[in-house]
Amino acid sequence: MSQLASMEKLFGVIDQTAIILRKELNCVYLEAVAETGENLFQGTILQEELDEVTKKRLKKEYDSITLDHFEKETIRKAYQLAILKGMKEAVQPNHQMTPDAVGLFVSYLVGKFMAGKDKYTLLDPAVGAGNLLTTILNTHAASIEHVYGVDVDDLLLQLTYVNANLQKHGVQLFNQDSLQPLFIDPVDLVVCDLPVGYYPNDEGAKEYKVRAEEGHTYAHHLFIEQSLRHLKDGGYVVALIPNNLFESEQSHLLQPLLKEEAIVQGIVQLPLSMFKQEQAAKSIIILQKQGEGVTAPDQALLVNLPKFSNREAMSDIMAQMDQWFSVNKK
């Protein structure tokens, strides 16, 4: 069976059983996806309140597949499809998923910047449903020693928990406001699709250097500062940022922090065609925390990506990037 056919088969089982559970448990589809994912992982039906007929219907679906026969990436993509379906059904601003192509490109950058490190630790302070994190883990798990994920949304965190379990990744998860104190040791790498917008907790924002003089502070600025706080010296942040990060009305508050505490190793602008509106467009920033022996590159990696579907243009860009890495990351 091809990978696509395998993924479609697994998605079909997740989807059909989630539909059954949504009706029987009177819950939203996303919650049912988490419930059915947990059933798949545990190899049993955990919802005791279901009647025998419903349990038999679910068991028939579950018995039609063997989870161990699926590759991790196939599981991630099938589960991702179900989550995307649920997010379209009940749109919430914080219920958005990092697109696959972006996740794979972030994973490529992680591999390049972390090359030479046998083992390293990883934190995603806005882990969401875990798609970006598990994309990276599926490529670099052998090098990643400890993994931490934080999110304030308990449903998204439950989806991450099931997502990681199904793919057999060990992840420590924390259900809390990521901008409050984190009881996590400093890590080597922070990856994050930064939540964009204002942070409503003005009192909490006062603990940060990038806080606004009046009114709400940008959450994405606070997340950058929090990420740098939780990095070891010389560690990296690889984060998705809004394109206007350095041109917004609060950018003058962020720039001194970056100058004092970090080196901007690179900025990669994602294709504008990926975004419905230009003002929603994003880039990937790579920051390195200042520390002994940390030096700035002669020239930062500055890239405007073409459409991912344009293979020739992408091949040219990747060759240019590989050349930059060969000079700056020996």
Rank of each mutant, 00 (worst) to 15 (best):
L254G: 09
L301N: 00
V237C: 12
L189F: 08
Y198A: 13
P271S: 06
E24N: 10
D177N: 06
L50C: 09
V91D: 02
D154L: 04
H140K: 02
M274Y: 07
Q176I: 03
K119L: 15
D322V: 13
H140I: 00
D63A: 14
K112Q: 15
K77N: 14
K329L: 15
Q265T: 14
R311G: 07
T66Q: 02
G103H: 06
K330G: 15
N94S: 13
M97T: 07
V196H: 01
C192R: 01
Y62N: 01
V303Q: 00
F223V: 07
L173A: 01
N94L: 13
F325K: 09
P125N: 13
Q323D: 12
Q92A: 14
A313G: 07
E49I: 10
A205M: 01
I19H: 04
T44N: 09
D188S: 04
M274I: 11
I75G: 01
E214A: 08
S326Y: 04
G215I: 05
G215H: 04
L40P: 06
A101K: 06
H95N: 12
V110T: 10
I224Q: 08
R22S: 15
G130P: 03
Q320E: 11
E247L: 12
G111S: 11
K232Y: 14
L81K: 13
L222W: 05
L272H: 08
E312Y: 03
A280V: 04
K329R: 15
